[in-house]
Structures are given as structure tokens and as C-alpha cells.
Design a protein around this nucleic acid. Sequence first.
DNA 1: AAAGCGGTACTTTTT
DNA 2: GTACCGCTTT
Length: 797
Amino acid sequence: MENNVRAVLEELNEEQRKAVQCLEGPVLIVAGAGSGKTRVLTSRVANLLAHGCDPSRVLALTFTKKAAGEMKERIAIMVGYKKARKVVMGTFHSIFVRFLREYASVLGYPEQFTIYDQSDSTSAVKTVIKELGLDDAVYKPRDVLARISAAKNNLITVSAYKTNAEALKSDSYAKKPRLVDVYERYQQRLKQSGVMDFDDILVNMNILLRDSREALEDISSRFSHIMVDEYQDTNLAQYIIVRKLAEKHRNVCVVGDDSQSIYAFRGARIQNILNFKKDYPECRVFRLERNYRSTRNIVEAANSVIEHNAGRIPKKCYAEGDSGEKLHVIKAYTEQHEAAEIVYSIQDRIRSEGAKYEDFALLYRTNAQSRALEEQLRRRNIPYMIYSGNSFFERAEVKDMMAYFKLVVNPLDDESFKRAVNKPARSIGDTTVKELEAAAASAGVPLFKAAYLEGLETYGLRAAAIAKLRAFCAMIDRLAQLVSNTDAFELAQHIADDSGLYAFYKSDNSIEGQARTANVEELINSVKQFVEEREEEAEGAEDVFTLDDYLENVSLLSNVDVADDEDTNNKVALMTAHSAKGLEFPFVYVTGLEENLFPSQSSQLSAHEVEEERRLFYVAMTRAKKVLTLSYAGTRMRNGRHESNPPSRFLSEIESRYLDKPLGGRIEKTGGTNQDRWSRGSSPMGVAGATRRPATMNEGAGPLKHPWVGQRPPYGSSTGSTGKPSTPLKPVDPDFVALPMTAFRPGMRIEHNRFGFGEILEITGSVPELKARVRFDELGEKLLLLKYAKMRLEKKA
DNA sequence: AAAGCGGTACTTTTT
DNA sequence: GTACCGCTTT
């Protein structure tokens, strides 16, 4: 083992080794992008253990489960699995939840409290707003929640808020004087429901350490060394917890990069890392400046951008070895064109360099931008995986099933109660639920308890409704008795059956219904996977892994955590720049580099926020190992409108010697050529435009080639005499997309997004009101207006 | 109680 | 362009 660590040390560069060997006292490791941060952190843990430190006395905090998992794995390789698993390593939230369960009673929560995700929290806020008789157009639930969240991140509890003149003033200025009441009632509701939201986990941890000397003493004495990853992203609540836990031994090692601080909107305080030296004057500082990930061109180009930010921790990141390709810039007319160029470039790399799909990442500022990329990838049959907010767990049917899981684990959870109570239909309608809510509010109890109150009739409930409610509660209660001693998978199946929810979805045979059933099955399957993984880790110990374990695990997942190997196996990755942090890919495309998009609109006003956007762009650039391509479009569809924006200022901040050709600048109207149609901004697409063809698009369009010239059309063959590509997926822009509706003929087999496969029987009407009568295999005949119908030729097997 | 409609807001990022 | 809400209808 000693030898192991010696070998580990030998592989490090000098600065890395110094950091790994500095085991006592406060340590700040400033780790540039790609500088081997994870290697240093894990080596340092291994080194601590080699020096006799008890692994269970090492606490390591990360932001994502993925980061924690990777570190654990790497530590296991160095010191063996047995020791590695004893290290207390995980996300801030998951580790703190563990502590909070131990001390739940001190805080007045049930030990098995559950956790609300963002959508649960939003609907709870909405409930409160209505309950208080406020207008939800003024008190927009999302905004209100953001405000509450900001308060919590800064440890402003309800009582502190009430006396916070500044906060109250700014609320009344924003015409929301009763926001504090919403905050108060929201907290009451959550507590009454035995629920914490994400922020409560940090707030309550602070309250615990502040108010219970015993808890502080107990928890902080469990650890001799604390390590914090991504320290630049910690907020005030996290900062204070770390400070308190490290107070005695002061063996706190934080790792981070101020240039990669991108979560200020979520309360992260870049000062935490900038001020570390003030907090711990005796600290040692190590700078990891050598980038092992990227080529020199990429590293230096990224440097040239980030140098536009003021007040950074001084450091000079550099790479050795190959200068590599210069950065490529794609300028496109529209987002479809941009996407097509990118896809073309991916195919080219695969053909000429033998790259694999999984070597590519497409990054963007907002999730909505994935659509155009997806469409182009799909039409070229390129496998891809989206890591996005709109994930599996946000689908209605999955949420329904999850509501039952949550309710069974915690019957006091009102939001889950309301979601589950009439799905499938039990004749417990809105009226009944409203009446029950009124009863619950006046008794000050959760809905589940309110159902058993005496005298519900006074609230208008009829005997039949009360009986139905109690039958529902009895079913939940019966299942709830099983939670603590039943295997999660087994219980999940019971719930799916007893609730009738599975049968409900199963009975729907439509295409969509089948997809929903598949999703519910997949959810239950994920419970099974969870149990199996845990059993494997437990190595034959007789533990039972229960549904509350599963819920906790799932509710603290992030976007990048959700994807498993099967999902990501050799697929192009699509994600936001935020989600990409901590990841790396040989080929990276940073897309949508336009003003008002990246940097985003809302950052226009404050220099502060522009700097955060710039750091985000820096993060995106530094994901690339080998080739970095940047792209922007002259016009793109946003909120159903065409928008034109000039290229992002960030592009011109890159020193030109790192670009493969000079920046073209804005795609301007030149007049005369048809190029102007791509830059005309918000003017709507006229019907008249539909008669124009993209045939001459190349003329006068500079270096741009038509994205599909020389390419095989996606499905079937071109039908028109013009030789234009035919049948795109979506007639987004009739000028550009070559008149899809005229391509359909009777007898063709088609595939419709919603109705499935079918055969065209007849085409009637004339452009643009062409209609098709289609006989669908599953659903019989339908008349579709081709202008709107989302259909394409059936793909030949 | 479910389905169908018309209007509106949405798009910054998320543990 | 779409998702969601609230209203109306069956």
C-alpha cells in the first residue's frame, strides 16, 4: 500500500505533488481547467490514508453524485475498495441529509422526512399563494420560489426576513409586499408535511449546528480532515457549514477555480474562494496551472477570453505538446443551418479520422436550443443523448408514479397526495379535494390526516366522498406499513398494482399510451436496478434497501447523473454549458454564440453578470480536448419569433491567431441576393415565400455551402424535378426546407409523430392548404392538413 | 370527470 | 412553436 502511494506520487507533477503531500492545516488548491484536479484530490485522500488517517474520518464534499462516484472509484483503485468505501464522500446535499435524519427530532422533523424537488416546491408555493388569496399573475410561483430560495441560500429565515428592512423594501418595490407571508406559510406547510426542499437541507444543517451544541460537537468531531470540491460554487449556507465543521482541526482542503464559477444565480459566492486566505491566514496555496486536457490552441484561446474578466486569482494556465488545430468557426443563416453544418462536420470527422460518436459534445446556453440540433442528428441517423432538464423524471406518468412512491413513504406530503388521489380516477374530484383542503387548513393538519377528522360534513363533504377519501388513505396506509421492511422493488410493484396506476396506463393502447406504460415500467425497473446496485455494494450483507432509500437517491440526482452507460454508449452528447462542467470530449461544438443568447439577454445590464457568462463560455471552451468549433446563426426562432442577433462578443474576444480564419462578423443583408432572407429578423415567413426555392442560395453567400448539397436526402429520394432535397422533418422555414408538403403522393407509407405509421390514400386541396387522407395502421383514417402535420416518409428498414 | 378550446407565457443556467 | 392554464362542453 505504501508502495502504491509512492507510485501515485511519482505520476504527479511538482505542484500537484506538493498539494498532495500537504496534509495538515488549511489548503487552497487553485486548479485550472484540465489540470488534474480530481487526480490531486483523490491522491491526497490516498496519501492521508497512507499516513494512518482513518478513512471514516475523512469528509469529502462534491456538488454532483457523478463527481463523488468517480472519486470514490479512483480512490478505490489506489487504496482498495474496502478502505475507499469508508471515506465519507458525497454531495453536500446527500451527506447533510444523512446528518439531518439523525437529528431530525431536534429540528422537529420526522426521521423519514422526504425531499421536494423544484417542481414539487413550485406547486407548494402555488398552493400557498392561492390559499392566501393572492394573484398568481403578480406573485408568480416561480419568481416567488426563486426569491425564497435566495433568502435561504443567504440564511435569511422567515423570522430574519420579517425584520430585514432591505428585503421587505425590495418586495414592496416589486409590488409583492406579502411575499414574506408566502415564505412563512410555505415553510409551515413543508414542515407540517414532513418535507424539506433543496435549500432547507442547507438551512436546517445550519440551524442544527447553530442551535445544538451537542450536534455540532458530535458531527464535527467525527472528521479529522475535510475536502471540498468546486469550492467556487459554494453558497453562504455551505460555506458556514464547512467553516463550522472545520473549526477545531482546521484541516480543510478546498479545490476550485474562480474562472469556472458559474452558479452565482443560485447563490454561489465567488468570494468564498477569493477570501479563503483571509479566513485561514495560515493556509497553503497551490496552483495547478498546467492543462493536461486540451491542445495549446484551445488553452490559449480560452485564456485570451477569460483575461477580459477583472479580479481573478492570478494564474497562468498553459499546455505543453501539440498546438493542435486552430479553433473553427461556423457561421450559419439559421439554427437549422447551424445544426446541419455541425452534423456534417461530425460525419466528416468520423469518416476521415475514425472518431466515434461518443467523442462529440454539442453545447448550448439554453435547453431549448437542443431541438434544431436533434432534428438534424435524427435525419442523419446519428445516435445522440440529451442531458437536459426535461428528463425522464419530468414526464407526467413518471411523476404520477413517483407521487405514489413519495406518498407511501411520507403520507403527510400534501403535494403528492393531491397528485395521486384521483389518478386513476376514483371520483375524488376538485371539489372534494378543495373541501378537504379547507378542513385541513382550519385543523392545521396535512390532507392525509384531515381525511380522518370528525365533522368533515361541515365543509361540504358528502358521506360518499368521505368514504372514497378514506378508502384511498387506507390503501396508502397499508402500503406505508410495508416501507421499513420491504425491498424497494417489491414495494414499488405493490404500489403500481394496488394504486391501479399501472393498469390505468396499460389499458391505453395508443402510441402515446404505450410510451407512457413503457416509462412507468422503466421507472419500476430503475428501482430494481437501484436495489441490485446497493446489494452489490453491501457485499452480501443482509440489508434491505427500501423505497425511502430509493427516493432520497433519486431526488438528489442531477442531469448528468441520470444517464447510465447504456444511454451514453457511443452517442453524441447534447447538453447545456452548465451541465458540461467537469466533463471533457475530444470534439466540442459550442453553439448559438450570439448576443442575447450567449451571453444571455438578462446579462446585458450588469458587468457582473457578463463576467459570469464569460466564465461559462470559458468552461464550455475548456471541455474540448482536441478540436473546438464555435458556431452562430444569423437568425433563429425563439418563442415562436424569428430573431436576429449579432455574433457573440465572446467570439471577438478570442485572439484571432487561434482561429482558423478571420471572423466574418454579422451576417448582413447584402441586398439583391437571396441571402437577405436569412437576416431579416422578426419579419414573419410569408406564404409567398413558400414558392421560392433554395436552389440559388449559394450564390453570393460567401464561403457557406448549402448544408445539404451533395448529401443524400434523409428519407426516400427526392421527388421534385428540381433535384432539391425533399421531405425534411419539419417545415420550419418554407424558403429553406424545400416544400415538403408537395412531396407526398397517394400510396406512400408515412410515419406521423403522434399517430404512427400509415398509408396516404389521397391528396386534396392546393398549396398551402394541401390535405392528405391517411389510413393509419393503428388508428384508422384521418384527414391531415399537410401544413401542420408532423409526418415523414416511413424509414426503409 | 374528461376532453377540447383558446389564451398566455415561455427561454438562462440547477444541487 | 409548445406547454400549461382555465374555461367550456359533453
